[in-house]
């Protein structure tokens, strides 16, 4: 039966978090029930203050085989990381 229901990706904004974070997925017949199900499945221990649901099918993902061309070029560009600055003592932890 559940195989007839679409899959939804669940995002929850935690008590102190600023952003919604992906927490997992579940099945539901529509968005409204996906939110209810998410409430029951993922917020049982007071994890969240807000829930987003997105149909898994609506997510466009990068292809794993593109990993090289997409991400590797940045490996050799150390100058993109702000590691060449001396941080004055008085600034403290950044």
């Amino acid at each position: 039966m559940s195989s007839q229901w679409p899959l939804w990706e669940i995002f929850i904004r935690g008590q102190h978090g600023l952003n919604h974070r992906h927490v997992g997925s579940l099945h539901a017949p529509d968005a409204e029930m996906a939110i209810r199900n998410a409430r029951d499945v993922y917020t049982r221990r007071n994890e969240g203050v807000s829930i987003w649901v997105v149909k898994s099918a609506d997510i466009t993902a990068s292809s794993p085989s593109d990993k090289g061309p997409l991400f590797e070029p940045s490996n050799s560009k150390v100058y993109r990381h702000p590691t060449f600055f001396d941080i004055p003592e008085e600034v403290g932890h950044m």
Binding site: M1, S2, L26, H27, A28, R36, N37, D40, V41
Partner: peptide, 12 residues
């Protein structure tokens, strides 16, 4: 329960 999501909801 008929589906996992309902099972958890009912247990709650």
């Amino acid at each position: 329960s008929p589906v996992l999501e309902e099972d958890i909801a009912l247990a709650n």
